[in-house]
Simulated assay, not measured.
Amino acid sequence: MSYALLRPFLFNMDPERAHDMTLALLEKAHKARALGFIYGQQSLPVESMGLRFSNPVGLAAGLDKNGDYIDALAEMGFGFIEIGTVTPKPQEGNAKPRLFRIKQAEAIINRMGFNNKGVDHLVENVRRCQYKGNIGINIGKNAVTPVEQAADDYVYCLERVYPHASYITINISSPNTKNLRDLQSGAALTGLLNTIKERHSQLATEFGFYVPLVLKVAPDLDDEQIDYIAKQLLDFEIDGLITTNTTLSRVGVEDLPFGDETGGLSGRPVSQKSTQVLQKFAERLENQVALVGVGGIDSGDKAVKKIQAGADLVQLYSGLIYKGPGLVQSCIQAIGGYYDALEE
Rank of each mutant, 00 (worst) to 15 (best):
S318K: 00
S48F: 11
L320N: 00
E261D: 01
N94G: 04
H121T: 12
L183F: 08
P88I: 04
A341V: 12
G67L: 05
N66P: 05
P15C: 02
A24L: 13
Q202K: 14
R7W: 05
P8D: 11
K231F: 08
K197P: 04
L5P: 09
V270C: 05
L203R: 09
D298C: 09
I81M: 06
F11W: 09
A151M: 05
V119H: 01
R33L: 13
L23N: 05
N55E: 02
P269M: 11
A204V: 15
Q41N: 14
Y322C: 00
K216P: 00
L248M: 10
N110L: 03
A32G: 10
G40H: 05
V119K: 04
F53V: 03
A188G: 06
I108K: 05
E206I: 14
A107R: 00
E254F: 10
E75A: 09
G252T: 02
A60Y: 01
A34C: 06
G319A: 04
N171D: 00
A188E: 09
E106C: 10
F100L: 01
I102E: 06
Q41L: 12
G191N: 13
G113K: 03
S330E: 14
I70F: 09
R128S: 11
T205C: 06
D182R: 13
Q130T: 10
D301R: 11
A334R: 11
S330W: 05
F207N: 15
A230G: 09
V277N: 02
R33F: 12
